[in-house]
């Protein structure tokens, strides 16, 4: 890393975005900070292959650079770049929709199940003993908007305001969307279990 960039490594994401017009090289810091996070997010909501993932990620960072002036300081930069990533990924997913069964999540699905079932007895009953692989399959089968909100909440650990900013939904409806997403997931798990057992 050049010394010029090292000098500015202490800057926050928002401060870097403010200086981007005059100091475009600082964008390298943004890429460093968000490559891993966004890779994981893209994989979780769309199960892209590695080559597709690189293409998407490249497009996300280039697009974010192009639209950097539209960054609204009322949002956190984290929410803003997740939003750019989300939109590009979803558009790509819709055009090339398929689920590759060879790809799996790189996270603890059991941990995810525990979090999802923590406060909903109906969902808990269905998912308590569900196989981790079935949950992953169910997660990739439910509607994209439900999958996205579950990933943002339980894998990316974003709060309701951040989810509202990423998905452009009213903050008051985030809880409702999460509730519906959990029910949809539980329903899909039940269907897959029945299919598996027959």
């Amino acid at each position: 890393m050049s010394s010029y960039i090292e000098e500015h490594i202490h800057l926050s994401d928002e401060e870097i975005m403010e200086r981007l017009a005059d100091m475009p090289d600082l964008y390298a810091l943004i890429i460093d900070r968000y490559t891993d996070k966004l890779s994981r997010y893209i994989t979780r909501i769309s199960c892209m292959r590695a080559d597709e993932l690189e293409d998407i990620l490249q497009e996300v960072f280039v697009k974010a650079y192009e639209k950097s002036a539209s960054f609204n300081t009322s949002l956190s930069f984290n929410s803003w770049i997740y939003r750019v990533c989300h939109n590009i990924t979803i558009n790509y997913w819709k055009k090339n929709k398929r689920y590759d069964e060879g790809i799996s999540f790189d996270v603890d699905t059991k941990g995810f199940i525990e979090q999802v079932t923590a406060d909903n007895s109906t969902v808990e009953t269905i998912m308590r003993d569900a196989d981790a692989r079935l949950v992953q399959d169910a997660l990739m089968t439910i509607r994209t908007k439900y999958r996205s909100i579950l990933v943002l909440r339980f894998f990316e650990e974003q709060d309701y305001q951040e989810i509202s900013d990423v998905l452009k939904i009213p903050p008051g409806t985030v809880a409702t969307h999460i509730h519906r997403a959990k029910k949809a997931l539980a329903k899909e798990v039940r269907l897959l279990e029945q299919k598996h057992n027959t």
């Binding site: 460093d32 490559t35 990620l57 490249q58 280039v62 650079y65 192009e66 002036a69």
Partner: peptide, 19 residues
């Protein structure tokens, strides 16, 4: 990283500037 070098190269080669 590969992604970083590709993105920065893309921005440089195509003359991409923030809107």
């Amino acid at each position: 990283s590969k992604i970083k070098s590709q993105v920065l190269k893309d921005i440089r080669d195509n003359g991409i500037k923030p809107t």
